[in-house]
Write a protein that binds this DNA or RNA. Structure first.
Lengths: 113, 113
DNA sequence: CTGCATCCCAAAGGATACTG
DNA sequence: CAGTATCCTTTGGGATGCAG
């Protein structure tokens, strides 16, 4: 695992926890109702199952996500944002808002949404 | 350059603009008074000049940073956050706050600060 | 002081196929 | 439905030295 015990800078920790191509996107989708593996795959069509499970595991191991087994047969699992870190919600949304503003000012298309 | 003209997801754009190991840290330091190349090197001792200039250039090319030549001889350059994107300030600080909270709850040391 | 050029490597991420 | 296993490619980033 990659989270250290000591950091000399808060933002280094943030990047270890939330950096990379997928984690913020996954969080956004979980916050918007895609709380199952299959729903996340539909919501993020360009992610492979390997990358999805890898990122989910890392987020779970760092206590940011909570994984709940709803039923065993058939296997049914639910992912939710840990209650401790609801503070991430405004950050995820803040990035979305920033991107929208940026796209508008720089002539970039953001597809549907 | 890596910024596309079309994105299917706002967070993809955010990650292209601000992702990676250094950009948020550099922004934090610029927001806290380290507005010169040499000041940034002092404030971020673990960055190489190559990485610093690379990241500064990308942030400048995406209009997030403004580069101002203060004097030619000796060369003196100033980096500032573009007025258009002051909205990034609460995001940078939000990450810092999140890290501090997270570190406390998970027994992680954040060095001095 | 600010910045560029090489060379290099580890790690992040992708393709594809398969499993309980 | 929710994952795993391999193999492979790309790229972000580091080391070092040089330049205007």
């Amino acid at each position: 695992m990659k989270i250290q015990e000591n950091y000399t800078c808060a933002l280094l920790l943030s990047m270890d926890l939330l950096g990379g191509k997928w984690k913020m996107r996954i969080l956004w989708h979980i916050l918007n109702g895609d709380n199952r593996f299959s729903l996340l795959q539909k919501g993020i069509p360009d992610i492979t199952s390997k990358m999805l499970i890898t990122q989910l595991k890392e987020l779970e191991q760092s206590n940011i996500l909570t994984r709940t087994v709803v039923s065993e047969k058939p296997l049914n699992v639910e992912y939710t944002l840990s209650t401790d870190y609801k503070g991430l919600i405004p950050l995820v949304e803040g990035f979305c808002d920033f991107s929208k503003e940026y796209a508008q000012q720089n002539g970039i298309s953001l597809g549907d949404l």
